[in-house]
Amino acid sequence: MKNPYEVLGVSENATDEEIKAAYKALAKKYHPDNYVDSPLADLANEKMKEINEAYDTITDMRKKGGSANSGYSGYSGGNSNSYTGYGYSGSSQFQNIRMMINSGRIAEAEQALNSIPQAQRNAEWYFLNGMVMMNKGWSEQAYSCFRQAYTMDPNNPEYRAAFNRMNSQRAYGAGGYDPRGGAAGCSCCDICVGLWCADTCCSCMGGNCC
């Protein structure tokens, strides 16, 4: 096994806080959400596992060594596993096409999708077609497919998640980079959550900021 400190990119003398920060930064970078539609999803999962193991090993070692530990449990190892493949429950019209995509037979899936007549192309068809396009790297086609699937069936969590993922990649701050040079990876979402937290805290103390 690799040296866990090397995996996290910190020195062995790093404080618990530093290790936690390094771990968090890496976990954000390799979070399975960034790679859901990517052909590299399996590699990202492995990397995430490695980071989780390294962090667990270090915290265990330090606990035994009597060093102070903040008890931060972080992203659990199981988290990364639950993202492998496209978990789907309920009935599916295109079960066999889903299987093709999950096992990486993209060309086959594309052919099967194309052979379905226009009249039968429902939200799921567009969603699956979007996944095929994403695997090919055709993200514009994928985007319009996911959008179509979402418009046709906005209540389906699977389509909504796919559409939201695309939107966050297309917005600034996607993929962990922040071109405006502020705090690393502070997306709109972080700002909203931050404001919300601040507001909640303020309200608690009796004041009301907004």
Binding site: S139, Q169, R170, G175
Partner: peptide, 17 residues
């Protein structure tokens, strides 16, 4: 801008690995 962002994001995700 959106088209460019997405390409950059996907390339960066791969680069990270």
């Amino acid at each position: 801008n959106e088209v460019l962002n997405q390409s950059m994001c996907l390339s960066y995700n791969a680069y990270n690995l």
